[in-house]
């Protein structure tokens, strides 16, 4: 009983699908099964399904019931977007799967090889591929749907195998951290690692949790009069233009580090192949740890809330 079969059956029963098609070249809303090549687990990772789905449900919820296929990182990003009122999951059954990672050319994407959450977090339905094989329901609505479509089955899960799978990832993750210390550590290495940046802002454009339609760092606040440039260069001797190249990266990091899911699309989109995964994923995870926050979980957005008795050494 494959995932494709489940999705086809759902289509027949009148559900809409939101799923990768054409082996990942696009994410699509599908109404009829014969109109497209449905590839729920694609070969390439092009665009975040979370970002794409939020375009559909930003202004309201779906009228029709639907199934949405999400990689674990996309699921987590989508839950954050729901918290930010940029997507709506009503009438939606979420379908996740154990993600084995994606390749860029020959190599596995760095974000995938070091992924800490390759298994679905809390989707209604999960397709088990590690330590077992089969489709299981995680929630009541998932169970109802599987029963309705005739796909409800018991799936045996080998937790040890799953542990081992995760351990591999953590090992890679540790290695990435060590590399990080050499690349983004201190003034010198930081400026070296980011100096190739060409200010295209692609990283922001593809990031699923960068939800602003117009970025602050693109706004008029950074539109300086000529005399401001002249004054600055008088003080500094030389001034790279556009200014605030680094402020864009660090500022964006400050704005979304609590939400980053570590999907690595920023690095995929970068025309200069700057290792942004390392920068964003590792710093973000450390920030999230301070607030005991996991993007995709039920917890409240860390910067919208506070406790009176925390961080008492500050101040």
């Amino acid at each position: 009983m494959s995932l494709e079969a489940l999705l086809q059956k759902a289509l027949e029963e009148g559900y809409l699908l939101f799923t990768p098609i054409d082996n990942g070249k696009n994410n699509a809303l599908v109404a009829r099964g014969d109109s497209a090549k449905i590839t729920p687990i694609p070969e390439s990772f092009n665009y975040s399904a979370a970002k794409a789905f939020s375009k559909i449900t930003r202004l309201g919820k779906l009228g029709n019931k639907a199934l949405v296929v999400l990689k674990p990182c996309e699921e987590r990003a989508l839950r954050e977007l729901v918290k930010l009122k940029q997507a709506d999951l009503e009438n939606v059954i979420t379908v996740g799967y154990d993600c084995l990672g994606f390749k860029n050319g020959e190599e596995m994407r760095p974000a995938c090889s070091t992924c800490s959450y390759p298994f679905p977090l809390s989707t209604d339905i999960a397709y088990i591929r590690v330590g077992g094989e089969g489709i299981k329901a995680n929630t009541d609505s998932g169970k109802t749907l599987l029963t309705e479509l005739g796909f409800l089955k018991d799936v045996k899960i080998d937790e040890k195998a799953r542990e081992k799978f995760l351990e591999e990832k953590w090992k890679n993750r540790k290695k990435m951290e060590d590399e990080f210390k050499g690349q983004f550590n201190g003034y010198e290495t930081l400026s070296e690692s980011l100096e190739d940046c060409m200010n295209c802002h692609n990283c922001m454009a593809v990031c699923p949790v960068c939800y602003c339609q117009e970025c602050y760092f693109d706004s008029k606040a950074f539109d300086y009069e000529p005399y401001r440039y002249e004054k600055a260069v008088e003080k500094r001797g030389v001034l790279s233009v556009p200014r605030d190249k680094f402020l864009f990266h660090l500022g964006r990091l400050a704005h979304m580090s609590t939400l980053c899911v570590g999907c690595g699309l920023c690095e995929d989109a970068c025309p200069k192949d700057i290792e942004l995964t390392k920068l964003f994923k590792i710093v973000s995870e450390r920030v999230q740890k301070q607030f005991d926050y996991l993007p995709g979980s039920d917890k409240e957005l860390p910067l919208s809330t506070y406790r009176e008795d925390e961080f008492t050494d500050l101040g």
Partner: peptide, 12 residues
């Protein structure tokens, strides 16, 4: 706290 953690992580 967030900014401090960012600075710490970046070796600043």
């Amino acid at each position: 706290e967030e900014v401090k953690e960012i600075l710490r992580s970046l070796g600043l």
